[in-house]
Computed example of a mutant assay.
Amino acid sequence: MSEFARVLATLRQIRGLSPFFALDVGRPDESWHDGEALFRGPALPDALDRIAARYRTGERRVAASLFFLGYTARVLSPVVAARAVDGVAPDIRPGNLWWRYTPEGLQVRLKEPVAGVGIGESLEPVVEAVHGLTPVARGLLWGNAGSNVAGALRTISRGGVDCAVLADELFADPPLKGTGEFIPFPGEVVFRRRSCCLYYRLDGGGTCGDCPLPRPTPPRR
């Protein structure tokens, strides 16, 4: 079987896990941006502005974090699932992607169904592009990536797949190493990150399930 066919077979196998695992292939209409638009032109700044307006925040770093959180959810979920089912992980480098930000959120699709490289090599240029537009910490952005990898592992494990070994492999080296830790819990993948995605900075945002910030104490009745 060719690499092309193997990647397509893997994408078909994992797409039913949840919408985040469905990664379409092929050239879309003109409303989509080439992946290279992440590095030049108005597409990425415009997306951050639209996210800021949507969530009513004046903090550009919060919008940047939310963009990268959505981006990594959509590109890393298929990669993690492919690894879990012993398939061929797709190439998610920007040069092999189309993307757009719509009222429904961020959408991503592949140009070609070819095999990819490591997570760090795939995402580092995007981290630098986002960091270059606003002073959001690189460690925070990589924490977003780690959180989404852990979330993908949690979804896959609920289907009966033992993800313990894969989790150790994915977080063994930088850039995911040190972004958080797995907490033993029977029958569940529980992850606690070491950075915060800043969602709590939004009106009514609160904290996420893997947030390192202390939860507010409920008022006594």
Rank of each mutant, 00 (worst) to 15 (best):
G118P: 08
G160N: 14
V189R: 03
L69M: 10
G160K: 12
P78S: 04
S122R: 01
E124L: 09
R158N: 12
A137T: 03
A43S: 14
E121P: 00
D203E: 15
G151S: 15
L11I: 11
R83L: 14
R6S: 15
G180M: 02
I92F: 04
V117Q: 09
S18W: 02
C208V: 09
R54W: 05
G16V: 02
S122E: 02
P90F: 02
P184S: 03
E30R: 15
D91N: 15
C163A: 12
L106Y: 07
I14P: 05
R201W: 08
T102V: 08
E3L: 13
L166V: 09
A137Y: 12
G178A: 13
L76Y: 01
E30F: 09
D162E: 11
V114H: 05
S77E: 00
V190S: 02
W99C: 09
L140C: 01
L69D: 04
C211F: 01
R74F: 06
V85Y: 15
Y71W: 14
P103R: 09
R201Y: 07
P113H: 11
F185V: 00
N96Y: 07
G120Q: 11
P212N: 06
I51W: 08
G16D: 14
F182W: 02
A137W: 03
F20W: 13
V161R: 15
T179E: 02
E59C: 02
N148I: 06
G160I: 10
G95I: 07
A89S: 13
C208D: 01
S122L: 03
L48G: 07
T57P: 11
E124Q: 11
L66P: 03
A52L: 04
